[in-house]
Amino acid sequence: MEKETINWLQLVKYLNNPQDTALEQQVRQWAAASPENEATLLQVQQLWQLSPDLKILDQLDTKNAIARLQEALPEDETVHHLPARRYHWFRVAAVIIPIVAAASWFFYHSGTVTYKEKATLAAIDSLLLPDQSRVYLDKNSRVRYPERMQKNRTVIMEQGTAYFDVATQTATPFVVKIGQSSITVLGTTFNIHLENYRIGVTVKTGKIRFASGHTNAPETILSAGEGLHFDPATGSLEQYNAINSNADAWITHELVFVDAPLSEVCKKVEALYQVKINLRGKIPVKKLNATFKNNKLEEVLEVLQATYPITVVHRNREITITGR
Rank of each mutant, 00 (worst) to 15 (best):
E298K: 08
Y197F: 11
R198K: 15
G206V: 12
N216T: 04
N244G: 02
D248I: 00
V275M: 06
S245D: 14
I208Q: 03
N216V: 04
D248W: 01
T188L: 13
G187A: 10
K267M: 13
H214W: 13
A290N: 04
N295I: 00
F257A: 07
G225T: 00
I208S: 05
G206E: 08
I192L: 10
I199K: 02
N196K: 14
S245L: 08
H214P: 01
A260T: 10
R280A: 15
D248E: 11
V256Q: 00
E264T: 13
V185R: 01
G206I: 10
K293G: 06
T202F: 11
I199F: 10
I199P: 06
P284W: 09
S263E: 15
G187H: 09
T220Y: 11
N216S: 09
L255R: 00
A242L: 01
W250Q: 04
Y240D: 04
D248S: 09
T291L: 05
K286Y: 15
G187W: 08
D259K: 11
K293N: 14
V285G: 02
H229P: 00
F257V: 06
L262W: 10
Q274Y: 09
Q274W: 04
T202L: 11
R280W: 08
I192W: 07
E226N: 05
K287F: 11
A224R: 03
K267W: 11
I208P: 02
K296Y: 06
D231P: 05
L194S: 02
I192E: 09
K268Y: 04
N295D: 13
F257H: 03
